[in-house]
Design a protein around this nucleic acid. Structure first.
Lengths: 238, 238
DNA sequence: TAGATTGTTAATCGATTAACAATC
DNA sequence: TAGATTGTTAATCGATTAACAATC
C-alpha cells in the first residue's frame, strides 16, 4: 500500500513536470544575479556576430568578458543546454536564445513621458532599436514641443496620455520628467494597460497591486560609487 | 628561540596594525556589496533630514528602505560604530559620516565631454550639487555650442581639453559623446591628471595602468532587465 | 534600574568556482 | 578513436540574517 502510494506520488510528479516543461513559455525561477548578467551576454554576443565569429567556447568568452568560464556555463545552463560538448556554443543560436529570454522578440512598445533633454537623448539613441523595443510616442506638457518630432517620435500633449497609450498599445513607459510629477503621472498610468515602467525620476513610485514592474535608474548612485572609488584611490596614492 | 621569534612576529604585527589605524584616512577593505548600498543610505538620510528627523533606529530605517535591520547595522559597522545602544543613530551625524566615506566633502571637480542631449540633461540636473561635485566645464566639437553655456556651465572646444582640465583641476570626466570617439578621447585623458571617468559611451575604455578609475553606465542593460521582467510577468499572466 | 537598541558573533543562505564525467 | 568542451555536481567562498551580549 505504502509502496503503491509512493509510486503514485512519483508518477504524478512526473506528469506535473511534463506539463510544466510542455508550456511553451515556462520560465524557471532564475537567480537575480544571473538575470542581471544576461544583458552583458547580449552585448558580447552582438560583438562576436559583428566580428563574424560563428562559434565560441566558454573559455574564449570568459577571456573577453573577464569572468570565469565556469560562471558562463553555469549561467547559460539555467535556461537550457545551448552548447555542444567538444565544440562550444554557436554564436548565432546562443544570441537568438538570449534574445528570446530577454523578450527582444516581443517587440515591446514604449512611450516616453517627459520630452526634456534626457527623454530626447534616450529617444535619439540606437538603444531601443537594438533591443527590439519600438518607441511609439512621447508626451510633454510644454506647448513648445507638443506636435513636434524628436528623432522619429512625435510628441503628444499629456492630456492625450491615456488615449494614446491605449491606441498605440504601449507596454512600457519611460519616465523622464521632473520628480515632482512622478506620483501624479503614475496614478494615471496604473489605470492604463501598461506592463512596465523605466523610472528615471529618482522618486519611489507607488504601484500598489497594479502588477506593473519597475526598473529604477539612479544615476546619482552610480556617480557616488565613482566618487567613493576616486576618493579611495586618492588616499591610496598619498 | 622559537617562542621568541613568535613573540617578535606578534609584536611587529601589532605595530603594523597601529600604523595602519593611525593613518588619518585609512580605508579598510569593504565589500563591493556594501559600497554599492552606500548611495542608497545617503538618499534616505537626506530624506530623513528633510523630514526633520534627528534620530533613527536600524529597525525604522529598515522599514523605510525595505531591507533587514541586521544588514543596516552590519553595513554601517564596516566603517565604525556610528550608533549608540539604546538610542539608535543620530541622523545628522550618520549623514556626515556617509558623506565623508563617499567623498562628498572632497568637492571633486568634473567636466563633461559631449554637450549633446545626455550631457546637457546631466549638467542641468541637481544631481552634482547634491553630491558636492562641481561641474566646471563642458567640451564639444560642434562650433554651434562652443562658447555657449548649458545650465551654468560653459562649453569649450575639444582642442582646449588638456589645457582646461589642467587649469580647472578636473578630477572626474563624464563621457557623454558618441562611442566612436570614446577611445581617442580616452587616450588623451590618460595623459592628463584626472582620477576618474564616468562612462556613458557603452565602449570599454582602455586605461592601461593610468590609475584612473571608471564607472560604466549601461542604460541598455537596465532596459533589458526591465524587458525580462515584463516578459516574465506577461507569461505568468497567461 | 529597566528598556531599548547597538555592535558583533555565529548560523544560514546563496552565488561562485573547481572538478570531472558525459559526450560531441 | 582522441581531443575538446560542455553540463553538472561538489566544494568554496562571500554575503545576509539571526541571535544575543554589551551598553547606553
Amino acid at each position: 500500500m505504502a509502496e503503491k502510494s509512493y509510486q503514485d506520488k512519483e508518477r504524478s510528479l512526473e506528469l506535473l513536470q511534463k506539463e510544466i516543461d510542455g508550456r511553451d513559455s515556462f520560465r524557471p525561477e532564475v537567480s537575480p544575479a544571473v538575470i542581471k548578467r544576461l544583458p552583458r551576454y547580449f552585448r558580447y554576443l552582438r560583438e562576436l556576430i559583428r566580428m563574424g565569429k560563428s562559434r565560441v567556447s566558454s573559455a574564449e568568452l570568459s577571456k573577453m568578458m573577464n569572468v570565469t568560464a565556469s560562471q558562463i556555463r553555469q549561467d547559460l545552463n539555467c535556461f537550457g543546454g545551448f552548447g555542444q560538448q567538444g565544440y562550444g556554443y554557436n554564436v548565432n543560436y546562443l544570441y537568438t536564445k538570449i534574445c528570446e529570454i530577454l523578450g527582444v522578440g516581443y517587440g515591446f512598445r514604449a512611450a516616453v513621458i517627459g520630452a526634456g533633454n534626457l527623454g530626447s537623448a534616450l529617444v535619439r539613441s540606437p538603444m531601443f532599436e537594438k533591443r527590439g523595443v519600438d518607441v511609439v510616442a512621447m508626451f510633454d506638457i510644454s506647448k513648445q514641443v507638443v506636435g513636434k518630432k524628436i528623432g522619429n517620435v512625435r510628441v503628444y500633449d499629456m492630456e492625450e496620455l491615456e488615449a494614446r497609450i491605449h491606441d498605440f498599445g504601449v507596454d512600457i513607459v519611460i519616465l523622464t520628467l521632473p520628480k515632482e510629477y512622478a506620483l501624479d503621472v503614475t496614478s494615471r498610468l496604473v489605470k492604463t494597460g501598461i506592463h512596465g515602467i523605466w523610472n528615471f525620476t529618482g522618486k519611489e513610485l507607488e504601484l500598489g497591486d497594479s502588477g506593473i514592474v519597475v526598473e529604477n535608474v539612479h544615476l546619482g548612485d552610480s556617480l557616488m560609487t565613482l566618487c567613493y572609488d576616486v576618493a579611495k584611490s586618492l588616499e591610496n596614492k598619498k
